[in-house]
């Protein structure tokens, strides 16, 4: 009996190692393929120059910038709202019918296909507002997409903070709000960082929700013009802004440049590198925030 359970234990260990190995291998092959295909476009000229219409040698500068700006803007919208909603659900909402309905809605929202949210964005943020295709419209649309995720992750991160810490704070005479602000949210930072990474990755890669909201064109951007109100400024949120993922889709399906395939390959490689870099940076920021709050770890 003992022998049997031990060999079962061994078998299970081996099976899980194999499965994990397959996942890692798949990822490595996939990333390797993308980087290999896009290898001759991994240069600064391609990254920083603008596309050239119908001719060879165009870059992806504006699209890459638009993607980054889109991530920034959508986070600016999603984070405060999502975190607040998470705080509400974790700390204030009493178990009741209304709370259950809210949770149900959040879950339903997070399982909607992004093209549906894109069309919703087209109705609301493009047509109803009369903005036409804008970066802001796109950012609001992907925020709709990401809000449920951030809300859910903040709620979980806050719930995972040990209740004994909350008790300690209240017993010292802190109010509920002080406890949330000074103990619960800082303790939840590692979980929140994971949420931010997931959602930024999603914004980087999102195409369907942005096709009809941020548009498939980018005006000529003058990077010396930093006035957010001026039309040609890259910082103007009320201009059309094709992102990298949308550009890949566009070039692949209707690109007119003779090197369209190469551009798509290069852009994909850059996209995946950008996502990696973003993850790493987010983790570093998260770790230093955490260290700033928790003090130096005495166990190295």
């Amino acid at each position: 009996m003992k022998i049997k359970s031990q060999s079962a234990d061994k078998a299970a260990t081996i099976v899980f190692y194999i499965i994990a190995g397959i996942v890692v291998l798949l990822l490595a092959v996939f990333v390797g393929y993308l980087l290999y295909q896009g290898r001759d476009r991994l240069n600064l000229h391609f990254i920083f120059s603008a596309p050239v219409f119908g001719k060879e040698g165009g870059g992806i500068g504006p699209q890459l910038f638009n993607s980054l700006y889109m991530v920034f803007l959508s986070m600016l919208i999603t984070l405060p709202i999502g975190l607040s909603a998470g705080i509400y659900l974790a700390e204030y909402a009493k178990p009741s019918k209304v709370t259950n309905i809210i949770r149900f809605c959040i879950e339903a929202l997070s399982s909607l296909p992004s093209i549906v949210i894109g069309l919703f964005g087209l109705l609301i943020f493009v047509n109803l507002t009369g903005w036409k295709y804008t970066l802001m419209g796109g950012a609001l649309t992907v925020s709709v997409l990401n809000l449920p995720v951030i809300t859910r992750i903040s709620e979980d991160a806050l719930r995972n903070v040990s209740p004994s810490i909350k008790e300690a704070s209240l017993a010292l005479g802190a109010t509920h709000w002080q406890t949330i602000l000074k103990v619960l949210v800082p303790s939840a930072i590692p979980g929140l960082v994971t949420g931010v990474i997931l959602t930024t990755g999603r914004v980087f890669g999102e195409a369907a929700a942005l096709l009809y909201t941020a548009g498939m064109s980018s005006p000529v951007l003058h990077f010396s013009n930093l006035n957010p109100l001026s039309h040609g400024s890259p910082l103007n949120p009320f201009r059309p802004a094709e992102t990298l993922a949308v550009y890949i889709w566009q070039v692949n399906s209707e690109g007119l440049a003779p090197d369209a395939r190469k551009i798509a390959d290069g852009a994909s490689a850059i996209l995946i590198i950008a996502v990696f870099l973003f993850n790493i940076v987010a983790r570093i920021i998260g770790r230093s925030l955490n260290a700033k709050f928790t003090g130096k770890s005495s166990r190295k």
Partner: peptide
């Protein structure tokens, strides 16, 4: 609290 020794003690006076 998952903070430094100092911040743990200073928490009460601070709030």
């Amino acid at each position: 609290f998952p903070m430094s020794v100092y911040d743990n003690i200073a928490y009460g006076p601070r709030i």
